[in-house]
Simulated assay, not measured.
Amino acid sequence: RIAFDGDAVVFSAESDEVYKREGLEGFRKFESQNASKPMEGGPFGEFLKKLSVLRAIYLDENGVSKVRIGIVTARDSAAHARVINTLRAWGTPADEAHFVGQWNKAPILKAFGAHIFFDDQEKHVLGASGVVAAGHVPGPHDGSAPVIPSGDLPA
């Protein structure tokens, strides 16, 4: 079970950049206007695509694979459509997708049973590391400041 953050990890940092320039309202407007436009790939975009091939190889007759993919992102439900449409356009189904907004990602990762999690924000990596091996994917922004707000996580 492998879990990923979305923006600036499997997807490009384009939406993060909009958030930095225009705030939450601008971000939501941008995502709504571009909901059907697939995002470009980020640092782990190709890895997700290859992992999806492996997932398909191990699908059983019930459509369940030994390889499970989760997306756990600080986007909230108001900004979910573009993620889902991008995954579909790429042919990379996720077994689970969670849009946690300001909530802590660790409980979701624990419930998913993730074996490893990748995020571009050090705050989320540290918060998740208590329940799963967590890898930091250096992002295009200040690591000490969350790009899309999230709740207080343990340091």
Rank of each mutant, 00 (worst) to 15 (best):
S150E: 15
S144H: 09
S144M: 04
E61W: 12
P146M: 09
S150F: 10
F118H: 02
N34A: 04
M39F: 10
D5Y: 06
P146F: 06
W103T: 12
F27S: 03
Q102R: 12
I69E: 01
A8V: 08
A8C: 15
G63R: 07
V64I: 13
V132T: 14
I116P: 03
P93W: 07
F117H: 07
T86Y: 00
S12F: 02
V125Q: 02
G143R: 04
K110V: 04
K105V: 11
G41N: 11
L24H: 08
Y19E: 14
I148A: 06
S144W: 00
P146A: 03
K110H: 12
V137C: 09
V83F: 01
K50N: 13
H124Y: 07
A128N: 02
V137M: 12
R55H: 06
W90R: 04
H98S: 15
D119H: 08
D76C: 10
P107S: 04
P146K: 01
T86H: 00
H80P: 00
H136F: 11
G139D: 01
F118D: 00
A94V: 05
K105C: 09
H141A: 13
I148M: 10
E14N: 07
V83K: 00
A94N: 08
A81K: 15
D95M: 06
P154H: 13
I69L: 15
E96T: 14
T86G: 03
K105P: 06
I108C: 12
S129D: 08
A111S: 11
A35D: 07
S32D: 10
F27H: 08
P107A: 03
A89R: 02
P107E: 02
A89H: 09
Q121C: 05
S129Q: 15
G143A: 14
E17D: 15
G127T: 04
A13M: 03
D119K: 08
V83L: 11
H80Q: 14
E17P: 00
N104Q: 12
G113D: 11
D76K: 11
F117Q: 01
G70S: 13
Y19A: 13
G63A: 06
G45M: 05
P149V: 10
R1Q: 10
G23C: 11
R55V: 03
A111Q: 14
T92M: 06
W90F: 05
P154Y: 10
P38Y: 04
A111P: 00
K105A: 08
K66L: 15
F99C: 09
K37N: 14
G91S: 05
H124C: 14
V83G: 00
D142W: 04
F27Q: 04
G101W: 07
G143P: 04
T73W: 01
N85D: 09
S144Y: 01
N104E: 12
G127K: 07
R88F: 04
K49G: 03
H80G: 08
G42Y: 01
V100F: 06
E96G: 15
N104M: 08
V137A: 05
D120V: 01
Q102I: 10
L48F: 02
V9E: 04
R82M: 09
I71V: 13
I57L: 15
P146H: 02
L126H: 06
G130M: 07
S150A: 15
D95Y: 08
A114Y: 01
K105Q: 13
H98Y: 14
D152A: 15
G113P: 10
G101C: 07
G63V: 07
V10T: 05
T73E: 06
D76S: 15
K50C: 09
L48P: 00
L48C: 05
P149E: 12
